[in-house]
Design a protein around this nucleic acid. Structure first.
Length: 450
RNA sequence: UCCGCAGUAGCUCAGCUGGUUAGAGCAUCUGACUGUUAAUCAGAGGGUCCGGGGUUCAAGUCCCUGCUGCGGAGCCA
């Protein structure tokens, strides 16, 4: 059989083929008839184009094929490409032939409104809708930008394992599984510890893959399975780390602005807000942020032992919740990095600030427009004895961390890194309402199907 | 896990202080139309009112319970 590989014309490139006869293969997105005209909206995965068939111009058989078509029928349509001002994409196809591969029956997702539950049950089909299609293309562009950025800046990809014997931070809940005769294994919640070992071997590395959190979170910014990219750099301090994070995020956003104009338009995204995402971003220390909250009268809701709630000034030492982060970000049109958090609320591996023992050299990047935290990172503790002390303080199993402690015995150096949540970044850039829309098949506390 | 809300046609929903044969729009099917793009017009079919129990002369409607889902909080990327 002759390969069709070379002869495919993608709908997104049709404007380059005006006046030519082409064959498009795809699926029927919508069809309407008006007298002797049949309008077929065809999608092929790259875009949508309206194909117009005038019955007197074709045989009865071809006209019959066109009239039979139902939503999501698979079809190859041949015709002449014509510039058309009325069309959203600027082109239409004048149909001369229609070949049916399969007629679809009772496709459940109509062009009308649907509820969330129904759409999630049909996620495997929902992905075909224009909006979901646009989001997935932006997602692919974000991932490409991440890889391009690191590959082009001297980083090496070093994959971390997904099965791990121990917790990274010891706090979050882990998914547990049997591992042959070796007892329990866990699905990784971060590749960072392994990335640190990799950085000592290759200097600048990044690890990129899925991560798993068994937290029973039920919000519009949590998944139980999500993708994270984690760079780790030898001889980087916190400032180097923050500079890198800003460069990366600026590069990702501007890549999408440049290459995803059609997708962002489909999504109704205000692109000017993305264009504004240029360095330098804002920065403030945790202590400055607490001062700002109290100066601006942003109170903390605190539950009393009797169940009632009172509002108090934000106490230094408490971790920020979503309401505090949102209040802080309302003043900014670009991301903001908050750094030097109280050591008590942060993970054991973060390095204490030599200028203030109460805080660690940690940083979070918050995105504007309500998108919230997209990055968490830190300079790591590189002193063996201090790290061991922190491990014991957190009651973590020393044995399991022997290899990690080794990194501080054999040529320990200052180093830093961070994790960027791919889905949160895509949610911000696309303006999606819920994180479940920005990953093809979301895994959430109450959903594992399809 | 905690706090709130919801479940009626394939889909999105309405259904009043309980009252006789269960409502609309869209989708589907039939017909009309040479510019529709949320097409329009005429007609047709389509219901275990989430499950179980209770109150009542009478329950889609009120009460109890279970299930499913949604929104928010905490945790975090």
């Amino acid at each position: 059989m002759e390969s069709r590989y070379k002869s495919f014309v993608a709908i997104e490139n049709l404007a380059d083929h005006i006046g030519q006869t082409v064959t498009l293969s795809g699926w029927v997105y919508d069809k309407t008839e008006k007298g002797k005209l049949v309008f077929i909206k065809l999608r092929d995965g790259s875009g949508i184009v309206q194909c117009v068939l005038f019955k007197p111009n074709v045989s009865e058989e071809i006209a019959g094929n066109a009239q039979q078509l139902t939503q999501e029928s698979s079809v190859s349509i041949t015709g002449t490409v014509r510039a058309e001002q009325r069309a959203p994409s600027g082109v239409e196809l004048d149909v001369t032939d229609v070949r049916i591969w399969q007629l679809s029956k009772d496709y459940p997702i109509t062009p009308k409104e649907h509820g969330v539950e129904f759409l999630m049950e049909h996620r495997h089909l929902w992905l075909r809708s224009a909006r979901q299609h646009a989001i997935m293309r932006v997602r692919a562009r974000v991932i490409k930008a991440i890889r391009d950025f690191f590959d082009g800046n001297g980083f090496r990809l070093m994959d971390s394992p997904i099965f791990t014997p121990n917790a990274c931070e010891g706090t979050s809940t882990l998914f547990e599984t049997e591992y042959f005769d070796l007892g329990k294994a866990y699905l990784t919640q971060s590749g960072q510890l392994y990335a640190e070992a990799s950085a000592m071997a290759l200097g600048k590395v990044y690890t990129f893959g899925p991560t798993f959190r068994a937290e029973k979170s039920k919000t519009r910014r949590h998944l139980t399975e999500f993708w994270m990219v984690e760079p780790e750099m030898a001889y980087f301090d916190l400032n180097d780390d923050m500079d890198l994070a800003e460069d990366l995020v600026e590069y990702i956003v501007q890549s999408c602005v440049k290459d995803c104009q059609r997708e962002l338009a489909t999504l109704g995204r205000d692109v000017s807000k993305l264009e504004a995402v240029r360095r330098p971003f804002y920065r403030m220390s945790y202590s400055e942020a607490v001062d700002w909250l109290n100066k601006n009268n942003v109170k903390l809701n605190r539950k009393q032992p009797d169940g009632s709630e009172i509002q108090i000034d934000f106490p230094w030492g408490e971790d920020f919740g979503a309401p505090q982060e949102e209040a802080i970000m309302q003043q900014f049109d670009r991301p903001c990095i908050i750094h030097r958090y109280p050591s008590e609320v942060k993970a054991f591996y973060m390095k204490r600030d030599p200028d203030n023992e109460k805080v660690v050299l940690a940083m979070d990047m918050l995105a504007p427009e309500g998108a919230g935290e997209i990055i968490g990172g830190s300079q790591r503790e590189d002193n063996h004895d201090l790290l061991l002390e922190r491990l014991r303080h957190e009651n973590l199993p020393e044995d399991a961390f022997q290899w990690y402690l080794d990194l501080r015995k054999f040529g320990s150096v200052p180093h830093a890194g961070f994790g960027l949540g791919v889905e949160r970044t895509v949610k911000w850039i696309t303006g999606a309402e819920h994180i479940r829309e920005v990953i093809p098949f979301p895994r959430m506390i109450y959903r594992i199907v399809p």
